[in-house]
């Protein structure tokens, strides 16, 4: 969970990008990394296989600015999407403050999206979280592809609770920062309720 450091006047929060294999989680982080002012970002770490599939996690530290005299730092993580890396996904969810669920819009990936969404809820519960209370944002990625499923259908299947949602094409950056801002806002708003 968030770490408030009065000594350094910092708030540190952890955001995890979740979703099925090859949906574009790492691409989201890479775009954020490439487009962020060097003063505001740290090094991006990718623990990946030789074929650039995420093996454990990607990590990108980001400074967003100050709020009430505290520097806000967000640590962005991705999980490995492939089904058999479930043990690693559980570990990465430890201490999460906000989640981005990246869905692959291609029709043939709809089962994988649903399986991953179920897996997210199960793993959050296993880590002691209530999946309905963790700030979550849905991103419908790869909207530019010809085989993209209709948005309405994706919404019905993946966002029955009406969470903040964004259409995206992460390779060119469409929707990437909008998604990040929405989840960061959710996390900060949550921090406010905790302080009450």
């Amino acid at each position: 969970m968030s770490f408030i450091n009065y000594s350094a006047r910092e708030i540190n929060c952890k955001i995890v990008y979740y979703g099925p294999g090859l949906c574009g989680k790492t691409t989201n982080l890479q775009y954020v990394y490439n487009k962020t002012n060097p003063d505001l970002k740290g090094k991006m770490i990718s623990l990946a296989t030789e074929t650039e599939r995420t093996l454990f996690f990607d990590f990108l530290p980001l400074a967003l600015g100050e709020i009430r005299g505290f520097k806000t730092r967000f640590h962005l993580y991705t999980v490995p999407g492939q089904v058999f890396y479930d043990a690693s996904r559980k570990l990465i969810l430890k201490g999460v403050d906000g989640v981005v669920f990246v869905a692959d819009s291609q029709v043939e990936r709809m089962d994988a999206n649903l399986e991953s969404a179920d897996n997210l809820r199960a793993n959050l519960r296993e880590q002691g979280f209530d999946p309905d209370r963790i700030p979550t944002v849905i991103q419908y990625n790869k909207r530019d592809l010809p085989n993209a499923a209709p948005l309405e259908e994706m919404r019905r299947l993946l966002n029955p609770r009406g969470l903040p949602e964004f259409e995206a094409c992460a390779t060119v950056g469409k929707g990437v920062f909008e998604t990040l801002k929405a989840v960061a806002k959710g996390v900060l708003a949550d921090l406010r309720t905790m302080g009450r």
């Binding site: 967003l64 600015g65 505290f70 806002k185 900060l188 708003a189 406010r192 905790m194 302080g195």
Partner: peptide
């Protein structure tokens, strides 16, 4: 100090 964060504070961050 975060109980007092306003929506405006959060928007300003971005």
């Amino acid at each position: 100090p975060f109980a007092e964060i306003t929506d405006e504070d959060i928007d300003n961050l971005f």
